[in-house]
């Protein structure tokens, strides 16, 4: 009897293992297409996290408001949001001015830009490696789409929206993920290249020739817009080390500007059709 029971148990275990292996293999077959089971489990449990996160936020706000002058707090929150919007407008203005466009054009852009900013909150970080991804509290109902760029509240690049996206939650791939790549240029030396994540909270510049000597330590790295995902002119990080190697390329390490410990409010840059 015990033998039969063990055989039945092993058979069911094998079925479960094969089921998981099929799920793993499907990703190779479907590439970036959505996995239905992943989408369902994400929608259900991201909603649980979202709900609890909102509840905690609500309780902490209530607590603060109870002791503080809550009108002042509310005003402060609104102003913080406004500051974040203004920072992004400022970035756009600077970029537009760089291109020597006339003021009317800039104004037109500015009005459009205001409608293309969406404030969101981080509700969870990656369960397996916290430098890979995060979940935000905005989804398809708020107009979130795949590949929208995401910045922190200071306007530094954080990552992009990837799937799955549910009604009120979406996942973002952080620039520190080892599978992430961003088109960039260095601000002073104007060297164009690709920034990749290292998976440990840092990034590096890929394919920078050893003959390239103009890059300097501390230089700011900014998005070039050539990747077609991240808009041009978003500050990404600064160069913290450069090492020559025996190969054709040098190792240039970049520390992202965004701070993991202060990830709360983020800005999603909704896609501009123009």
């Amino acid at each position: 009897m015990s033998f039969l029971r063990d055989r039945k148990n092993i058979s069911i275990l094998l079925v479960l293992i094969v089921f998981n292996l099929i799920l793993i293999s499907l990703q190779v077959y479907l590439e970036e297409a959505e996995n239905f089971i992943e989408k369902v489990s994400f929608s259900i449990f991201a909603a649980v996290k979202h709900g609890f996160s909102s509840l905690m936020k609500g309780i902490s706000r209530f607590w603060e408001n109870y002791f503080d002058l809550w009108h002042a707090k509310k005003k402060n929150r609104e102003m913080n949001k406004e500051i974040t919007r203004l920072r992004h407008e400022n970035i756009l203005l600077k970029n537009s001015l760089k291109e020597f466009r006339d003021i009317e054009e800039i104004k037109k852009d500015l009005i459009q830009f205001h409608n293309h900013i969406l404030l969101a909150r981080i509700i969870s970080l990656d369960f397996s490696n916290l430098y890979k991804s995060a979940i935000i509290d905005k989804g398809t109902m708020d107009g979130i789409e795949k590949n929208m760029a995401v910045c922190d509240k200071y306007g530094h690049l954080l990552g992009r929206v990837i799937e799955p996206i549910s009604l009120k939650e979406a996942r973002i791939q952080l620039i520190t993920d080892n599978l992430c790549a961003v088109g960039i240029y260095t601000e002073n030396s104007m060297v164009y290249g690709i920034l990749k994540g290292k998976g440990n909270g840092m990034c590096f510049l890929d394919h920078i020739l050893t003959t390239e000597k103009s890059i300097s330590l501390g230089e700011t790295v900014t998005t070039s817009g050539y990747d077609g995902i991240y808009p041009q002119g978003i500050r990404v990080g600064s160069i913290i080390s450069m090492e020559e190697s025996s190969s054709l390329f040098q190792k240039v390490e970049v520390r992202p500007y965004f701070n993991f410990n202060r990830l709360d409010m983020v800005v999603v840059l909704k896609k501009n059709d123009q």
Binding site: I17, N20, L23, Q27, N35, F45, D126, F127, K132, S133
Partner: peptide, 25 residues
């Protein structure tokens, strides 16, 4: 284990099903 692993995978940008497999075992 399969259920919990797949939930964990849905909160991660990694390969969907790896945690499912590990937790099943």
């Amino acid at each position: 284990g399969t259920v919990c692993g797949l939930i964990q995978d849905s909160f991660s940008a990694g390969i969907y099903g790896i945690s499912g497999l590990a937790k099943t075992l």
